[in-house]
């Protein structure tokens, strides 16, 4: 019986360990914010965090997350979500849980990503092509997030 941490809560579930995590989340835990898009890891609509890393849950077995920490959009509380609203990103909205999970993981790893890093990390498909606003929202969230403390310059005398 696979056991893991789901949105900070220990859970175990009676399913075949080969079952994709996506369907365990949706059908066993009723966490339907994580979406089915392609089933082959191509579109990213099913993106969740496993130990903080953006992971495509349709090609990740539930057995593969044994003992690990899984977070879904329902368990996310991240500045990107506010930025997504401020930049009015979603259109149909179907891919946006996955986009937000991917963006949150990106910013947690790279708090101030350059354009190339954003393009390399954000490979989820959006058929509405909301990409322009996704880029703006990631920039906004990065600007508003606390940045890692940089080495302090040597103290200078105050005038």
């Amino acid at each position: 019986m696979p056991s893991f941490t789901l949105n900070s809560r220990p859970v175990s579930v009676e399913v075949d360990p080969d079952t994709p995590l996506l369907w365990v989340l949706r059908e066993q835990f009723a966490l339907t914010g994580t979406k089915f898009g392609c089933g082959v890891g191509q579109c990213g609509a099913c993106t969740v965090h496993v130990e903080g890393v953006a992971t495509r849950s349709c090609i990740t077995t539930v057995g593969g997350v044994e003992g690990r920490a899984v977070r879904t959009i329902e368990g996310l509380d991240h500045p990107v979500q506010k930025a997504w609203i401020e930049e009015q990103v979603p259109q149909c909205g179907y891919c946006q849980s996955g986009q937000i999970m991917a963006a949150a993981a990106l910013l947690d790893a790279h708090p101030n990503p350059d354009e190339a890093t954003v393009a390399d990390s954000m490979t989820n498909l959006c058929r509405c092509a909301t990409y322009a606003r996704i880029k703006k929202a990631i920039r906004r969230a990065a600007d508003e997030m606390p940045q890692p403390i940089a080495p302090q310059p040597p103290p200078t005398s105050t005038p």
Binding site: F36, V89, P90, G93
Partner: peptide, 19 residues
């Protein structure tokens, strides 16, 4: 004004057919 459907599309709450 802000779109009325957007908040629910940032937290997994929006109900699509598949949900």
């Amino acid at each position: 004004p802000q779109r009325l459907d957007i908040p629910s599309k940032t937290n997994g709450a929006a109900l699509f057919g598949i949900d």
